[in-house]
Design a protein around this nucleic acid. Structure first.
Length: 202
DNA sequence: TGCCAGGCCCTCTTTAGGGCCTT
């Protein structure tokens, strides 16, 4: 399979349209079933981090004072990701920040995100919770660090995506798990999902 | 120091409501 970039943002809020900014990004490249590279950095935007989010992420306003500027970090991570197709857990969230932060350095480009939340709801409907951390424990994925830090969450989402790819290959008999196939699968109604899997099975 | 979304998905549904998930 082609290289895929799995990203995770920590931010000051829920929506860039409401003034929320990124505080940290983690990016993990996966290929042929394994993690092949990692990038992570705090980023300074000048935006204030509310106490709730300081507590949630452990990223404080003080920590961000010495962080590199967001423009530099986004240039670096954009170079790191290159043209790789992308994925995230609840990609609707991370893709908005990816686009918004890149737009600030004139590097925004259309990109389809695979979403490990949407995919896990389809592939693992029996899971008691589809929160990233809960899925990781449920699937017995190895611990990768503090939850709600960007690199740990990106790595966990990457390992979850690798598990789902392996299950599609082995359990469902799908011949090749391409990024476009995952993007179709995550949007498909349940019946359509089964049709899609059957079509891609040998 | 603080405002507080929206798409997905299920069901006691579809002329709707509410929980989940991300920070």
């Amino acid at each position: 399979m082609e290289t895929v970039a799995v990203i995770d943002f920590e931010t000051t809020g829920m929506k860039p349209e409401q003034g929320a900014r990124a505080t940290e990004i983690g990016a993990v490249l996966i290929r042929d079933g394994v993690v092949i590279d990692r990038y992570a950095s705090l980023m300074h935007t000048g935006a204030w981090v509310p106490p709730f989010i300081e507590s949630l992420t452990g990223i404080t306003n003080e920590m961000l004072l010495d962080a590199p500027p967001a423009e530099r970090v986004m240039r670096e991570v954009s170079d790191f990701v290159g043209d790789a197709p992308m994925a995230a857990h609840n990609a609707a969230f991370d893709s908005r920040f990816w686009s918004a932060e890149l737009a600030r350095i004139d590097r925004d480009r259309p990109v389809d995100f695979a979403c490990t939340l949407l995919l896990s709801r389809r592939l693992y409907p029996e899971a008691p919770s589809h929160k990233l951390g809960n899925l990781g424990r449920w699937a017995d994925l190895p611990s990768v660090g503090r939850a709600h830090r960007a690199l740990a969450d990106a790595e966990l989402a990457a390992r979850l995506l690798l598990r789902m790819e392996a299950d599609l290959l082995i359990r469902y008999g799908v011949e090749e798990v391409s990024h476009p196939f995952l993007c179709k699968l995550q949007q498909a109604p349940r019946r359509r999902m089964e049709e899609l899997i059957e079509r891609f099975a040998p």
